Amino acid sequence: MHYPSEAHMNAVTRILRYLKFSNGKGLMYSENDHLNIDGYTDADWARNISDRKSTSSYFTFVGGNLVTWRSKKQKVVALSNAEAEFRGMAKSVCELLWLRRLLTKIGFALSSEMNLFCDNKATIGISYNAIQHDRTKHVEVDRHFIKQNLEEKIIWFPFVKS
Rank of each mutant, 00 (worst) to 15 (best):
D142F: 09
A130N: 11
C94H: 08
F159I: 10
K25S: 13
V76R: 09
D42Q: 03
A109D: 13
W45C: 02
H8L: 00
Y3C: 12
R100D: 03
L102R: 00
E6L: 07
G64L: 00
K161G: 09
H2Q: 12
N36M: 11
K161F: 11
N10M: 11
V67M: 01
N23M: 06
C94K: 14
V12E: 02
Y3G: 11
F59V: 08
T68D: 02
E83V: 07
N23F: 05
V141I: 15
T104G: 06
E85R: 11
M89H: 05
A130R: 06
R70Q: 09
Q148H: 15
G107Y: 00
K20E: 08
I146G: 02
G88K: 02
F108N: 09
V160E: 05
I154W: 10
L97S: 01
N65W: 03
H34F: 10
V93A: 02
L102I: 06
L99K: 11
L150S: 01
C118P: 09
V93I: 07
R70M: 09
L35E: 04
L35S: 07
F145Y: 13
D119K: 02
L16D: 11
T68H: 01
E152S: 15
W98N: 08
T123C: 04
K25Q: 12
V139K: 04
T123W: 04
T136R: 03
F157H: 12
I131C: 13
G88P: 04
N10F: 06
I154V: 12
N10S: 11
L99I: 09
I37R: 01
S71T: 06
H2G: 09
D51G: 05
V62I: 04
R101C: 12
K153W: 13
N149T: 11
A43S: 01
H2D: 13
N81C: 12
Y18W: 01
T60F: 05
T136P: 03
A109V: 15
A43L: 04
N81P: 10
K53F: 00
T13G: 07
H138C: 08
F61N: 03
F145S: 06
V93T: 06
W156Y: 15
N120A: 04
V67Y: 00
S50L: 12
N23A: 07
N149Q: 14
W156C: 15
S57P: 05
K25I: 11
S57W: 15
T136E: 05
W98R: 11
L103N: 04
N65S: 03
V62W: 00
R17Y: 01
D51F: 03
H144P: 08
W156E: 14
I155Y: 09
T55G: 06
L102N: 03
R100P: 04
